[in-house]
């Protein structure tokens, strides 16, 4: 049976992990390669690297990092952040990334989704969508939730599926950072209305939240950062609990 995926997300700035990471047993918790290796050994199913650098050398630094991660890590990983062209994606995939995730660049130029899916295949194109609820409507936002767009979450998700996205990474800006649980209602609508996998993101605080997002939110995968980085949740314990709840996982 296809299992539900648990995905730690690492924020990267200038080739280093940002946010305090409380992996006491690591020599250098700021080294994304070492952290990625630790997560793969801890039972993570996949990893997401989100680059938030704003320097001129950003592209080169990220490409070098991807190569180092691919050299060391034996599970799949996705790279996102500032990707806006076929050339960007080409370098990252050549260097060993399994998937790329695009967000603002797809909103600004929806044709990019078609172009990337056509050239590299839908299976490696994840479209990340950040949205928040305004007057009962889920509105797509850019720049980490700061800038609202005209787009409705569900319409946009359906559009990118049609354009060739292989997967949706949906972050609820209303839930992100709250540790209050995932946006399960919106997630379950996405999961029912689309026929590509949906990754839940934003709101993970405890193990039960993951159970709920797979059961009520019908998510195919769940992504989180701080609960894993600060060891509030151990991936092995989490998966055991999911299994106890009859949710298929890889143990």
């Amino acid at each position: 049976m296809l299992t539900k995926r648990i995905i730690p997300c690492l924020d990267i700035k200038n080739g280093r992990t940002v946010k305090g990471v409380n992996f006491v047993d690591l020599r250098d918790a700021g080294d994304p390669v070492e952290l990625a290796d630790a997560y793969s050994k801890a039972g993570a199913d996949e990893l997401v690297f989100l680059d938030i650098s704003a320097t001129e050398e950003r592209r080169k630094t990220l490409a070098e990092l991807v190569l180092k991660v691919a050299e060391k890590v034996n599970i799949p990983f996705t790279v996102g952040g500032g990707i806006s062209s076929i050339e960007d994606v080409d370098v990252l995939l050549q260097n060993g990334a399994d998937k790329v995730s695009i967000n603002s660049s797809a909103v600004k130029n929806p044709q990019l989704v078609n172009d990337l899916a056509g050239k590299f295949g839908s299976q490696c194109i994840t479209v990340a969508i950040d949205a928040k609820q305004i007057d009962d409507k889920w509105v797509v936002h850019l720049v980490g939730g700061k800038v609202p767009t005209e787009l409705d979450l569900f319409d946009w998700a359906k559009e990118v599926e049609k354009r060739g996205a292989g997967e949706i990474l949906f972050t609820s800006m209303d839930h992100d950072g709250t540790k209050d649980g995932f946006a399960n209602e919106a997630l379950s609508i996405l999961s029912e209305e689309l026929n590509i996998p949906i990754i839940a993101s934003g709101g993970a605080g405890n193990v039960q939240h993951f159970v709920d997002t797979f059961k009520e939110g019908k998510a195919d995968a769940a992504l989180a950062a701080s609960v894993f980085h600060f060891k509030e949740i151990e991936i092995k314990d989490l998966k055991k609990k999911l299994q106890d709840n009859k949710i298929p996982v890889r143990l």
């Binding site: 049976m1 296809l2 299992t3 539900k4 995926r5 199913d45 996949e46 839908s122 299976q123 292989g166 997967e167 026929n195 590509i196 996998p197 195919d220 995968a221 890889r250």
Partner: peptide, 13 residues
């Protein structure tokens, strides 16, 4: 066919 999500992405047995 569309009885399942396509692509299949993840760990299976």
């Amino acid at each position: 066919d569309n009885q399942v999500k396509v692509p299949q992405i993840g760990w299976n047995q």
